[in-house]
Structures are given as C-alpha cells and as structure tokens.
Simulated scan of single mutants.
Amino acid sequence: MQSRFKVKKRKILEQLDTPDVDYQDLSPKGSIDTPIRPLISDINGISGLVTTSSCSGRISVFLEGRKKEAHDAELPSETDVSRAGPGGKGGGAWLFISHDPVDFSEHPHFMSSFGLQSSDAGKEMAPNDSCRYIHLKFEPMVCTTTTLTVIVAAMSAGLRESGAVGLSTPKMGDLNPMVAVRSTGYSFDAIIGYQDENDNNIALVDEAYLSILVRIANDRFKVNTERIARFRAALLEQYSEAMTVSALKPEWEDPEIRRHRKREEGLARQRELASSQTASDT
C-alpha cells in the first residue's frame, strides 16, 4: 500500500501535468507562475518532496473587502458574503496583478491600468472610517513544500522567514510536515486609493507617485529572482550531496543476519586455509 505522502504527491503531479488550457488552481491567476516552474519541477523531482502551492512573486493592486460592522451580526448570512475582518482582510477584489516586472511601455498611465479615478478638483479627499482602501503591493515568492530539511537551503538563499507551517500528526499515521519557503523582508504595501460611497475607486496619490512605487516594486523583483535562483541551486546541491552519501553508505543489515554471515565467511576462510596447507604437504 502506498503511503499517504506518495498518494498525495501522485495526485499533485497529475494535476501539474494537466495542459495549461485546462489547468486551474485557487490562486488569483489560476495557474502556476512561469518564473517559478523550473524550481517546482526540481522540487517535485526529488524523492520525499512535493510542492503544494507556490507564487513566484507579484505586484498587485488590491481593493479591501467590506469591513464588518457591529450591526452585521443582525443581518442574514447571505448578505454577509462580501464582509471582511479587521483591515479589510478576506473578501476584496484584485484590480491588477503581474507576476513579472511591470513594463512601463505597456502601461503608460497607471491610474487607468489600476482602475483608479483622480479626485475631483477642489474636492477634499476624506475617506470615512468604513471605506475600503486600495493597496499597491509587492509580495515576494513563496513556496510550500514537505520536509523540514528544505529550511537549510532556504536560509542559505536568504529566505529567512521560512519555517514550518504544519507539524500535526494525521490520524492515519504519516507525519508530513509542511514548510513555507518565503522572505517578507523586501515586501511592501502602500495605500494608493479608496472606494467611495458610489463604488468609485478614487486615487489618493498622483501618476508620478504611482510610477515611483512601480519602479520600487520592479527593483524588488530583481532581488526576488536572485533569491529564487539561489534557493534552487542550494536545494539541488543539498539533495545531490545527500543522495551521494546515501549511495556510498552500505545498506542496513539485521545484526543476527550479519553475525551469521560473518561466521560463515570465517569458516570458509578456514576451509580455504586448511585446503591450501594440505596441498602444500603433498
């Protein structure tokens, strides 16, 4: 019978083999990011490892979900679908996503690319306490995989916020710890607008400031790409050394069987020695 891990890995690999036109996952993009595909392939090619989710890093513009108010508890559950927790967490909508540095020639006007409107001339920008803010974010790569030994390669690559995210023992027996490989130290989040009472997305900054933020995000992408490459190299080196040591290490042998084998080998040598002495005497 296959272990739970092997069954899980087989299903994940079958899903990844699905043609791109048919593949769909739960990420906003709905598929694996191209920049991280080589790393995913290498991880899944190592015995005992498999990825469960990944993101190569992204620049995004995100509209918060509707904040929960005190009176929300009195509303029927079906009206609560778009409500979010503190800070607009949960719900919300993606206004823009890129898993590569943003090409300025393709987006000459970030205000329109991000779905924002300039505030009316002379109108004071005063979002109220319950408004939904709009964020421009850069989020570095993250990759969730099995086995704690991955942390060694992650740390050496500068992904210092990596760590275990699941250590509970499943009821069926196998312990498959999950590790998130990540580094949040070069991420950033800037509020660039809000949604008014008429559901208009109003900018709180101008075009020049949006350009500055995008340039910063593009620079962070360079760091992100370098760390992905370093992690991939460190991981392959670590497991290459482990496989070499494993190949050179003799297979485990039951102590009783080993004693019997050694005894038989000793008796065989004694018989050979006695035979050779008899031959020399004649």
Score class of each variant (00 low, 15 high):
residue 30 G to H: 12
residue 65 G to D: 06
residue 242 A to G: 12
residue 217 A to T: 14
residue 161 E to M: 03
residue 45 G to E: 05
residue 79 T to S: 09
residue 50 V to M: 08
residue 211 S to T: 07
residue 267 L to H: 13
residue 133 Y to S: 15
residue 183 S to N: 10
residue 26 L to C: 05
residue 4 R to E: 13
residue 190 A to D: 03
residue 279 A to P: 12
residue 276 S to T: 15
residue 271 R to K: 13
residue 2 Q to M: 10
residue 28 P to V: 02
residue 171 K to H: 12
residue 23 Y to R: 01
residue 16 L to S: 07
residue 143 C to D: 02
residue 245 V to C: 05
residue 16 L to G: 08
residue 58 R to P: 05
residue 251 E to T: 10
residue 84 A to T: 11
residue 58 R to D: 01
residue 244 T to C: 13
residue 98 S to M: 02
residue 11 K to W: 04
residue 184 T to W: 00
residue 72 D to N: 06
residue 170 P to W: 04
residue 162 S to K: 01
residue 7 V to S: 08
residue 18 T to K: 12
residue 217 A to S: 10
residue 65 G to F: 02
residue 201 N to P: 02
residue 195 Q to L: 05
residue 3 S to Y: 01
residue 278 T to Y: 09
residue 188 F to S: 05
residue 83 R to T: 08
residue 40 I to W: 08
residue 56 S to H: 08
residue 199 D to M: 07
residue 169 T to G: 06
residue 243 M to S: 15
residue 48 G to C: 08
residue 120 D to L: 14
residue 75 L to T: 03
residue 23 Y to D: 03
residue 111 M to F: 01
residue 170 P to C: 03
residue 154 A to K: 00
residue 29 K to P: 04
residue 224 N to G: 03
residue 278 T to G: 05
residue 33 D to R: 03
residue 101 P to V: 00
residue 201 N to H: 09
residue 260 H to P: 00
residue 17 D to T: 10
residue 42 D to V: 01
residue 236 L to R: 11
residue 124 E to I: 02
residue 159 L to K: 00
residue 16 L to E: 12
residue 30 G to W: 10
residue 60 S to Y: 09
residue 189 D to K: 07
residue 125 M to R: 05
residue 198 N to R: 14
residue 97 I to T: 01
residue 255 P to T: 12
residue 47 S to C: 12
residue 97 I to N: 00
residue 127 P to E: 02
residue 166 G to P: 08
residue 248 L to F: 06
residue 92 G to F: 00
residue 264 E to P: 12
residue 130 S to Y: 03
residue 55 C to N: 04
residue 140 P to H: 04
residue 270 Q to F: 03
residue 142 V to R: 11
residue 185 G to A: 08
residue 264 E to R: 15
residue 104 F to S: 06
residue 19 P to S: 09
residue 194 Y to S: 08
residue 185 G to T: 13
residue 108 P to K: 09
residue 71 H to W: 13
residue 123 K to I: 01
residue 194 Y to A: 03
residue 215 R to V: 07
residue 264 E to C: 13
residue 282 T to D: 06
residue 204 L to I: 15
residue 2 Q to G: 03
residue 91 G to L: 07
residue 234 A to C: 11
residue 247 A to G: 14
residue 82 S to L: 09
residue 121 A to L: 04
residue 268 A to M: 11
residue 245 V to I: 15
residue 241 E to M: 11
residue 215 R to S: 15
residue 194 Y to Q: 04
residue 105 S to R: 09
residue 243 M to R: 15
residue 131 C to H: 13
residue 224 N to M: 08
residue 87 G to V: 13
residue 66 R to N: 09
residue 115 G to S: 07
residue 113 S to Q: 11
residue 42 D to A: 14
residue 54 S to A: 12
residue 248 L to P: 06
residue 107 H to D: 02
residue 26 L to F: 03
residue 161 E to W: 00
residue 116 L to I: 07
residue 37 R to A: 01
residue 37 R to H: 02
residue 33 D to V: 04
residue 104 F to H: 05
residue 79 T to M: 10
residue 144 T to D: 11
residue 28 P to A: 03
residue 38 P to F: 10
residue 104 F to R: 06
residue 215 R to N: 14
residue 124 E to C: 01
residue 71 H to A: 15
